[in-house]
């Protein structure tokens, strides 16, 4: 699909700049040009598609659906899948959380949504698709949904309602107050310019991180010897997965830029499972999100929430290292 782009990168670096294809500099520059353009295209296309989904996503109906149906445990799966396909920004997570719980959806099912939503987001998917290909992306998305399902189910078993903040409990007791809502009447074509603009904004917002990430990746790609990480981080050492998860927590702001670097790690011998665990911890265990959630949950509940997610991520890292 991106053959033409590889030809372009080859032509630009090896012919126009006249850098020898065999040199480290040539390899690194070629890698940089090819990846940057490819990622930009993928990012824009995926963010754009998710923008369309976002505008039309019937979140109210979803809430009512999850609330009314008895689904024998499948509600966790559905909730996690919906979390994966709904691209809401992190600041919507608290209103969504309260809206769900207020609508009578069990806390565990709400957690399934809350876990998967940041894990499987459009930027992470676009980056994974660009750097690791379709198969690894599907594995990533599938394990994100599985993780949300299991994590939500576990948390649901713990009877955590008493650990919500007091004001949330107050709101839950109150009868839901109805604010009048004017139905939106914009056609698709009227919305298109706004969706395009929003997609451009998101891509612009992560562009710098992506370029830095790809540049670091390109340099490492050219200069770090093959199998370098195999000796230190690859293979059997049990502690590499937990270490990757811990290292990932402060990376939140640069999630998009991290992927190209991880890709080089994998190319040089780090197992894919460890890489996926690292990526999930980067987007799933974010300090900004914890700060937001602090408003609706007690410290104990947040700690439990993050502990369960962390453990699930670590386990999935081990499982993938065994399977892949």
């Amino acid at each position: 699909m991106f053959d033409w782009l590889q030809h372009f990168a080859d032509w630009l670096i090896f012919t126009v700049f006249n850098i020898d294809a065999g040199t480290k500099l040539g390899t690194a520059l070629n890698f940089f040009v090819y990846d940057t353009i490819k990622i930009m295209i993928l990012l824009f296309v995926i963010v754009f598609i998710m923008g369309i989904v976002n505008t039309y996503f019937p979140i109210e109906q979803l809430k009512n659906y999850l609330n009314k149906k008895k689904l024998y445990g499948l509600e966790y799966v559905f909730s996690a899948i919906f979390g994966a396909i709904t691209p809401f920004c992190s600041c919507s997570s608290v209103p969504l959380f309260i809206g769900f719980v207020q609508g009578g959806i069990p806390l565990g099912v709400t957690f399934s949504f809350l876990i998967t939503s940041p894990l499987v987001n459009e930027v992470a998917i676009a980056m994974f698709l660009g750097m690791f290909g379709l198969k690894a992306t599907l594995i990533y998305a599938f394990s994100g949904i599985l993780l949300g399902t299991i994590g939500g189910w576990l948390l649901g078993k713990m009877n955590l309602e008493p650990l919500l903040s007091d004001w949330v409990k107050e709101i839950l007791k109150l009868k839901m107050q109805q604010t009048s809502y004017q139905k939106e009447q914009q056609t698709f074509y009227q919305r298109l310019p706004e969706i395009t603009r929003a997609a451009t904004d998101i891509v612009k917002g992560v562009l710098l991180y992506v370029i830095i990430g790809i540049a670091i990746g390109a340099i490492m790609h050219g200069y770090v010897p093959e199998n370098f990480f195999n000796q230190y981080l690859g293979g059997g050492q049990w502690w590499t997965v937990p270490l990757a998860v811990i290292l990932a927590v402060p990376m939140y702001a640069n999630a998009a830029g991290i992927v190209p670097v991880i890709q080089v790690f994998v190319a040089k011998g780090v197992p894919l499972g460890t890489a996926i665990a690292f990526m999930m911890a980067t987007v799933g265990l974010s300090i900004p999100e914890a700060t937001l959630l602090k408003k609706v949950m007690s410290l104990k509940l947040i700690t439990l929430f993050f502990a369960v997610v962390t453990i699930c991520i670590i386990i999935s890292g081990y499982v993938f290292n065994l399977l892949l």
Binding site: I59, E60, K63, F88, C91, S92, P95, L96, I98, G99, F100, I171, M176, Q177, Q178, T179
Partner: peptide, 8 residues
């Protein structure tokens, strides 16, 4: 939350 919106 008093306005009953879920997405901002």
């Amino acid at each position: 939350m008093k306005y009953n919106v879920m997405t901002t």
